[in-house]
Design a protein around this nucleic acid. Structure first.
Lengths: 146, 146
DNA sequence: AGTTATTTAGTTGTACACAATTTAATTTTA
DNA sequence: TAAAATTAAATTGTGTACAACTAAATAACT
């Protein structure tokens, strides 16, 4: 009885591991035209909303640390999508803001959520339940990782 | 109405992306003693069951290609966990088999599923639903990625 | 004020993950 | 059977992820 639960947990972890890569693969196609990766797209989603955020704030929202963000933001800067400059109030902070070129991608990206839905056709009820389950799962995982 | 679904899909993708990293982080702790990563642990799970599998078979089961597997298996070989040798029937294939040292890890790994469950305490019903939902989601994603 | 502790990015090193290409072996087919 | 197509790994190059560490700035404390 317990062992079934064990196997189920194991399977779920593997499926999340696999699903993440399949989702990234799907985004890779959808984002190819924009020449950005999925994590870069996530950064842009935030900057399209707020225009400017510190590396720390980006990290808090995306659950990524500077070891991941710094080189990624440098690549985005190199591609002209964002600007990075030290905060004047607090020289420890680096403020990342979206450039005109980065802003221009917003329109091109408008169709992405629609295409996403086309590729993962699921009922709204099912989506709602999945969302809720993942949320509580994440809370537990993140609680523990502190 | 549609736009809610769009946002939901987006959120779910982000949550799967995040959950995958949290799960990997959890496994990293649990596997530290064994000195293997989560993907390496997945390889070992298969080899504990079958003893020998070709790179192709491993790839089919884990949905990984040789670009990922070859260097990973070489690291595992370097650590003495597996052996790699060309198949005699078909010189294109490389057969990966678990060594004694790799086999010995099986006992140490016995407690991992239990510890996993301790860290993600979810009801069995919820787990069952989550498993089913992820399965159908994966099928659709993998159907499309061909 | 001066010292200590904390915070914020950046750096270094390791390990996936995958697209694209290459190489060698095996099948298929003309 | 010889040429063409396919298959299986390996290789190359790019981009995350993250642990561990460093450097600089700010905050907290005595």
């Amino acid at each position: 009885m317990k062992s079934e639960t064990l196997k189920l947990e194991n399977q779920i972890c593997f499926k999340i591991y696999t699903a993440e890569r399949e989702i990234t693969k799907l985004y890779r196609e959808l984002l190819k035209e924009l020449n950005v990766t999925y994590p870069q797209y996530l950064v842009l989603l935030l900057l399209w909303e707020k225009h400017s955020l510190s590396v720390k704030e980006l990290g808090q929202r995306l659950f990524l640390d500077s070891g991941t963000l710094t080189p990624m933001l440098k690549r985005m800067e190199l591609n002209g999508l964002v600007e990075r400059k030290r905060s004047e109030q607090d020289e420890r902070s680096v403020i990342v803001s979206v450039t005109e070129k980065g802003e221009a991608l917003k329109e091109k990206a408008e169709c992405i959520p629609d295409q996403l839905v086309d590729n993962i056709p699921m009922g709204k009820d099912e989506l709602t339940i999945l969302n809720k389950t993942l949320t509580s799962m994440l809370e537990q995982l993140q609680d523990h990782s502190k």
